[in-house]
């Protein structure tokens, strides 16, 4: 639904541009195709990784697994599971809400949610292609560490 609205907005922007300058807008489309072609081979790899990660674990299974661990170890497990597995945000939040209501440590949930949204192991090929290997590794590693820190603080404060 959101994707359709997004496409509609882009279409409107494109039409406005098109009426203002036809040649420039056609040139823009050519640039779109070129940038898509450039990233397409990497995209294939990422989609395969993504489908693989999705096929392995459903969102429910991920949260149930993390909820089953206890102690400080749970924060580490939540962070690493969240980094490797992919659950889209619109599926993450409803499931996270259920587990929060059922009494799972809010710290674990905060780590898992933060790590799921910020650390994307499977899309590292795209990140490397666009922004460089060092960028991708350092950003993902820092986000992983900070996800744990955020979760531990959340666990104390919530």
């Amino acid at each position: 639904m959101l994707a359709l609205i997004f496409n509609a907005v882009v279409l409107v922007v494109f039409l406005v541009c098109y009426f203002r300058d036809k040649d420039k807008s056609v040139h823009a489309l050519r640039l779109s195709v070129r940038s898509f072609e450039r990233i397409a081979p990497v995209f294939v790899v990422v989609i395969l990784l993504l489908v693989f990660a999705q096929g392995l674990f459903s969102g429910d299974a991920v949260f149930a697994y993390v909820a089953g661990v206890s102690g400080l170890w749970g924060y580490l497990v939540a962070a690493f599971v969240g980094a490797i597995v992919h659950v889209p945000p619109f599926i993450t939040f409803p499931i996270a809400g259920q587990f929060l209501a059922s009494g799972v440590n809010p710290g674990y949930i905060a780590v898992l949610v933060t790590s799921l949204v910020m650390v994307h192991t499977f899309s590292i090929p795209i990140e490397v292609k666009e922004l460089g290997l060092k960028f991708a590794l350092v950003r993902n590693f820092l986000c992983l560490v900070f996800a744990i820190v955020i979760g531990v603080i959340m666990g104390v404060l919530y």
């Binding site: 994707a3 882009v10 279409l11 494109f14 420039k24 040139h27 823009a28 779109s32 195709v33 940038s35």
Partner: peptide, 11 residues
């Protein structure tokens, strides 16, 4: 939508 947006942005 994304790649049209990127093209429009670049042009």
């Amino acid at each position: 939508g994304f790649f049209v947006l990127i093209g429009l942005f670049e042009a």
